[in-house]
Design a binder for these strands. Structure first.
Lengths: 129, 129
DNA sequence: CCGTATCCTCGGAGATACTG
DNA sequence: CAGTATCTCCGAGGATACGG
């Protein structure tokens, strides 16, 4: 049996299943990246923007707000001039970060295989055509 | 130190980092769902479509092809009439499924907290406004 | 420095109709 | 049953400019 136990407990196939929401949050292109970087201690708007190549100010703020709204990131505004705002992972954010560990590990461990699979697939596809 | 060890090894912030690709694949709305369901033994086009509420034929085929191209899913066409095609996880697909386990567990364990956090956040937001 | 507001476009994704 | 082709639309997301 290849089916892990957790597949029985969660069924995101149904739209009424909670996991759909969170799957969307996690599936977001920038969420994981921001979570990752904040976890590394990068905690200011500008720093995040510089660190995460390719993100726009709009998406940064937007995703930050989403993470904050979901209780994964805490925002601390020092209300000074010039503005000073710091972001940090909440305990829940940290726990998610840890839960994501195996996935990142998997990416590291299998990236080469995926690339190879892609090459083989396009070869096969070309043959067929 | 809250930073897990794996954050040092992977840096998806850079566009030249392999993990960006895979993050996109995993981040896809349907990929995880399809992976999950195929892992449960649902292996035919029609069955998948029926099982995964809300997916269109187009997205099903499209995502299936992507998963196949990345070596996560195997497609077996029996070339009969009427058509009979079966999908299954490859060993690599299974390993990814397992790597995703903690994430799904986290979703189960923390969904209630997230909902609560959302409620508090909107309350706070309303106050501010 | 930290954002918000606005505009605009590009392609993701559904619906539909058709084929082997 | 499995899948492709086409058309269309909607909105995510970038660029830009401005405000506190």
């Amino acid at each position: 049996m290849n089916v892990p136990d957790w597949v029985e407990k969660v069924d995101p196939c149904k739209s009424d299943c909670p996991s759909r929401d969170l799957l969307d949050l996690i599936g977001d292109r920038w969420s994981l990246l921001i979570l990752l970087v904040i976890g590394q201690g990068v905690n200011r708007n500008g720093a995040l923007k510089r660190r995460i190549g390719g993100i726009s100010q709009k998406m940064l703020t937007q995703t930050l707000r989403a993470l904050e709204a979901n209780g994964l990131v805490a925002r601390h505004d020092f209300a000074t001039v010039p503005p000073h705002v710091e972001y940090a992972l909440t305990p829940m954010g940290i726990s998610l970060q840890h839960a994501l560990g195996p996935m990142f590990h998997w990416i590291q461990d299998h990236y080469a295989d995926v690339v190879k699979a892609r090459a083989e697939f396009s070869t096969r596809t070309q043959q067929a055509a």
